[in-house]
Amino acid sequence: MATQTTPATPTAAKVNGYGATSRPGTGSTSWETFSWYFFRISGVGLIFLALIHVFLMHIANDVSATSYSFIAARYANPFWRVYDLLLLTLALLHGLNGLRIVCDDYIKSHGARLAVISVLFLIALSFWLMGTMTIITFQPGHTLAQTLLGLLHH
């Protein structure tokens, strides 16, 4: 239960055996401390990035209007490509960190936990590469294959 902090009741700390996940202090690895801060910092960033994204794509514009030409006009401005890359990267890292903690909670065997987290990391990396490729290579009027061919011929 490392995502939640400061137990609701004092007894909570006894229950999970992890000291109920208050800020990692002395004795915990610096990696866990980094993870703890990363959750909160990426979380604050994602509140703005994700909620503005949802507002623009589902409220200010109906989803049916976010067509190919809409994206083409939007991605003419590099700001939105950087915005989407940041959102993609932070959201995947935040989600992967969450999965890691879920694995810590439910998979008892150290070896199995390491194996599952490694597979999840590779899946997240594949999705990150896929999303990044889409955001960077998108050219209106050209398919991904055409853009890649164009790059390879030069």
């Binding site: 995502t3 969450g98 999705f127 999303g131 490729m133 889409t134």
Partner: peptide
Amino acid sequence: TGLGVLIFLLIHIVDITLIGFGP
């Protein structure tokens, strides 16, 4: 909710990839 949003994010990455296949 975190797991739900993460699953949607993965679906969303796939559907956005389709933009590379043309309008």
